[in-house]
């Protein structure tokens, strides 16, 4: 027996555009969705669960992650209830739900708190640099160390526990019995979706979007590898230097296009942007651009006299690594691919 909770909707409204109350259950959204199938009939089910405030149903569901937001449901909805945007809001809400620290929810719901966090980290970086007497070498060395340390700690203390919580909510708590071998057998599913996002291709009109997204993912992962492992800022190797340039250009060009389309609102997927969406694309853009300029400064021997440029890059990097990656939109990289993995497992069971 489920108790209806109308207050739940108010909570969801804090995570995105909320017109879903207008739904009169015609089912058009599910009918036009090219990703839905008999096992996962969304978005109508999720719309209904949101209207009724059946939060447990949503928490245990993978449906929000299985939607890649082509926007067909929103354009065909006779009540303009915007199911696609609800799925987006639910992804944000789930991100907060999975996060054991509760910070994700706070950051997403309160722009003020987000700004506060961004400012504090910026001040921290500047304070730290002053503490180091603005010594370029030390700061850049520590910056490199920070990259490695933050990846390791964010992953083990935030992302891994949160993935575990996701698994608990969708598999363990609903009482789905899965053999250990199934996890092993279906593991390829996780890798395929993590590195190809091939489900996006199931959407009707998304070839280009998928391609750009794919390039961005690879550009990002490659730049991460190039800076952290190959020490791009420290290397003398021409090949690595060029590689880093290409990767950073890919990142800021594509993110520039993404930011521009969010401003133009030219597609359903771009119509509604929450602060978390803006932070994600803009910071990724800044990350690529500042890394690019920093390396140019290094190559032109300007960095010694222009430490501010590196500091700017470092601030963006720290904010990215401590706010956006663990608690912001970055997590969709993991949750989406794990959702496909868990969905496959559930289907097998």
């Amino acid at each position: 027996m489920a108790k209806i909770n109308p207050d739940f909707a108010k909570e969801i409204f804090k995570y995105g555009n909320g017109d879903f109350h207008a739904c009169y259950n015609c089912g058009n959204c599910t009918a036009v969705c090219s990703l839905t199938d008999e096992h996962n009939s969304f978005p109508r089910k999720m719309v209904r669960a949101s209207v009724l405030g059946l939060d447990e149903k949503i928490t245990s569901s993978l449906d929000p992650w299985l939607c890649y937001y082509c926007g067909d449901c929103a354009t065909t909805c006779p009540r303009e209830a915007n199911p696609g945007e609800l799925m987006m809001s639910l992804r944000r809400w789930l991100t907060a739900k999975y996060d054991w620290t509760g910070l994700s929810g706070l950051l997403q719901k309160s722009l003020l708190f987000s700004l506060f966090a961004f400012i504090i980290t910026a001040i921290g970086v500047i304070y730290y640099s002053a503490f180091q007497n603005f010594n370029v070498e030390i700061i850049m060395h520590h910056g490199h160390l920070f990259e490695m340390l933050s990846i390791a700690s964010v992953f083990s203390f935030i992302l891994l526990p949160n993935l575990f919580r996701m698994w608990y909510f969708v598999i363990l708590k609903p009482g789905i019995k899965v053999k250990f071998m199934t996890y092993i057998k279906e593991f390829q599913e996780l890798l395929i979706h993590m590195f190809t996002q091939k489900r996006t291709l199931g959407c009707d009109d998304n070839q280009l979007r998928w391609f750009m997204h794919l390039i961005l993912v690879f550009g990002y992962l490659a730049l991460l590898f190039t800076t952290v492992v190959l020490d791009w800022f420290g290397t003398e190797n021409l090949f690595i230097i060029l590689l880093g340039y290409i990767e950073s250009v890919v990142i800021f060009v594509i993110t520039f296009i993404f930011v521009a389309s969010r401003i133009q609102k030219n597609k359903e997927v771009n119509k509604f942007s929450q602060p978390s969406d803006w932070f994600f694309v803009i910071w990724l853009f800044l990350l690529g651009l500042t890394a690019f300029i920093v390396r140019i400064f290094i190559d032109l021997d300007l960095i010694e006299s222009n430490l501010w440029m590196y500091l700017f890059h470092l601030i963006v990097l720290v904010q990215w690594a401590l706010i956006i990656v663990p608690f912001g939109k970055w997590t969709h990289f993991l949750y989406r691919s794990f959702a496909m993995y868990f969905a496959k497992i559930k289907q097998v069971v």
């Binding site: 209806i4 109308p6 017109d19 109350h21 207008a22 739904c23 009169y24 259950n25 009724l52 009540r79």
Partner: peptide, 14 residues
């Protein structure tokens, strides 16, 4: 009116 009520958050069960 039906539209108005549902938009205002009224819940319809059938």
């Amino acid at each position: 009116l039906y539209h108005e009520a549902s938009e205002a958050g009224d819940i319809f069960l059938q």
